[in-house]
């Protein structure tokens, strides 16, 4: 009977120590969140690490977790700048298109730039130059559509975005 009492006491004491220790740890160092359990609804997404969040010092009020920052890319997919053979092949047509534009040949430029887009739909430059060709042809509505596509794909490139913005202004001036 006595032994059982001591065991129970020891158990509570051990638990209490563990609790204090773990609380201390959680206050002193940011604790990584438990790995998300795979659920049926969530099967569509690969599991990912959640960025650690510092625990606030006050413990009276329940903490308000901030929504996690959106991920830019899914881990399972290749990064945008990874050049596939198709993407590399498209560069040739992209350059041809730019050369045609320099020579004031918008129809020829569009012909090859469309080929470049079909090979690599992720390259914003192709949409930018397609918009240029449509400006040259005086077609504001098509120029606007391609300018918008350029904007989607060039958002990570500040220099490119500058060009896209100034292109947009030129399009708005078109009748």
């Amino acid at each position: 009977m006595e032994l059982r009492k001591y065991c129970l006491l020891f158990k509570w004491a051990a638990m209490g120590m563990a609790l204090i220790f773990l609380t201390g740890c959680s206050i002193l160092a940011p604790k990584p969140a438990p790995k998300p359990e795979k659920t049926e609804v969530g099967r569509h997404l690969p599991p990912k690490e959640i960025s650690p969040e510092p625990v606030p010092k006050t413990v009276e009020e329940p903490p308000v977790p901030k929504p996690l920052l959106p991920k830019k890319e899914r881990p399972a997919e290749p990064p945008v700048n990874q050049q596939t053979p198709m993407a590399l092949a498209s560069v040739t047509f992209s350059q041809q298109g730019q050369a045609y534009l320099k020579n004031n040949k918008p129809d020829e430029a569009i012909r090859v730039l469309e080929r470049a887009v079909n090979l690599n739909p992720r390259n914003g430059e192709n949409y930018f130059y397609l918009a240029e060709a449509w400006i040259m042809k005086g077609n504001a509505s098509q120029a606007r559509e391609f300018n918008r596509l350029a904007e989607i794909y060039m958002k990570a490139d500040p220099e490119g975005m500058g060009r896209v913005q100034s292109q947009k202004e030129r399009i708005n001036k078109l009748k």
Binding site: A33, P34, E37, P67, L68, Y153
Partner: peptide, 29 residues
Amino acid sequence: PLPSGIETLTICADSREIAREGCCPRIME
């Protein structure tokens, strides 16, 4: 590629609301 205007959030699989870190037993993205 992921366009602008899409947010990836961790949510509670039971309530389908934003997950409370360490509180929700089943979370998903």
